[in-house]
Design a protein around this nucleic acid. Structure first.
Lengths: 205, 205
DNA sequence: CGGAGTGCCTTA
DNA sequence: TAAGGCACTCCG
């Protein structure tokens, strides 16, 4: 049986010289359960996901939704166990927040601006005055933030023109629904296989 | 590389006569990787953790807590996207559900009842009319269901007598807080080492 | 943090 | 060399 002599060290960030510049190693001790005492190691290049600078520019004010409330008699108020699971509620989402990025361009450290990125034809913008570069930013954010599939909006173009605010799905980027066919999958498999064969041949030489 | 000629047979549970009653053998075919085609054999002695019959008798009705609600104009009601993340809320926990087990006893298949189980002296019941057999059931359920440490209630006996419902921690069994000292750990290590030595000697003979 | 699933060392 | 068994990774 092993026990750490210092129980307060359960998370530590390490600047590790063996790592490429800008990478960081974090060790987190598992505190409970079957696997208590094991260590999970995480590597980060640049800022973490929770970094405020990577959060899209949605409204920052507090939630207006009602929260569950427990009423207790006065002399017991400081003994009540608060159920943290119920307190955590999502903030309301700002619709069309992508518009705030509309006139901004990414640039090199030198100040030189990047060229526009060209999206595949199957990705079509959806929404009032949403054009290619805005969908690009919307889609990139969705891929970065969502931990569910990115499929686009399900409402039709007509519905969106009638009342975009009513038909928008705020979890998905501002593009028309994208369908991946069996053929698409097969084509992608072919590309991967081709790349593998090329790699094998390169390794032989 | 070996592959089964019938790809649908990649997991099979077998009632094996050579096994003691109640045991089950499962064979799982490895589907990918270097060791694809190899078979892993698992033995189970009773139901798995997810078995519904093992869930303690907590209240089964729906939540009475308020849920976030979105008001929409009438002609659009069937187009609203419901945010599933917000709908999923925990059911309220039934306090003192252990009382439902109070007059029940485990028995053999023959109908013969088990003797009462005697708990260590360090485990003390806590709560209105909670006695040894009820703590036993409360504790057994906690050990089975929790994936966090089982430590007992933190409130004092006096607080519990004053207002059990206010001071109860519903995540923990109905026993007074239990402390494991370094000495307890050392004593347990000694017991394990002794048992190992006995086993070694038995294996030599 | 748990569990499914795979890597790979040990044994005979 | 294969089977057994444990360590480990990966992902939800």
């Amino acid at each position: 049986m092993q026990m750490s002599s210092n129980i307060s060290i359960e998370r530590k960030k390490v600047d590790c010289n063996a790592l490429p510049k800008g990478w960081q190693r974090e060790e987190v001790l598992r505190k409970s359960g079957i696997s208590a005492g094991k260590v999970d190691v995480y590597y980060y290049s640049r800022a973490m996901r929770t970094d405020a600078s990577l959060v899209p520019p949605i409204r920052q004010t507090a939630s207006i939704f009602k929260q569950p409330v427990t009423v207790v008699r006065n002399h017991e108020w400081n003994k009540v166990k608060h159920d943290t699971k119920q307190v955590a509620q999502d903030k309301p989402k700002q619709l069309f927040w992508e518009k705030r990025l509309e006139n901004m361009r990414a640039c090199h450290a030198t100040g030189e601006e990047f060229d526009d990125i060209v999206l595949p034809k199957s990705i079509k913008p959806l929404g009032p005055n949403i054009h290619e570069q805005t969908v690009m930013q919307s889609l990139a954010t969705a891929l970065h933030v969502l931990n569910t599939p990115v499929t686009g909006q399900t409402a039709t173009k007509t519905e969106f023109q009638k009342n975009a605010t009513a038909y928008i799905n705020p979890d998905q980027p501002l593009m028309q629904g994208v369908l991946i066919s069996e053929d698409d999958i097969r084509r992608q498999e072919d590309r991967v296989n081709l790349a593998r064969r090329k790699l094998q041949e390169a390794l032989k030489a």
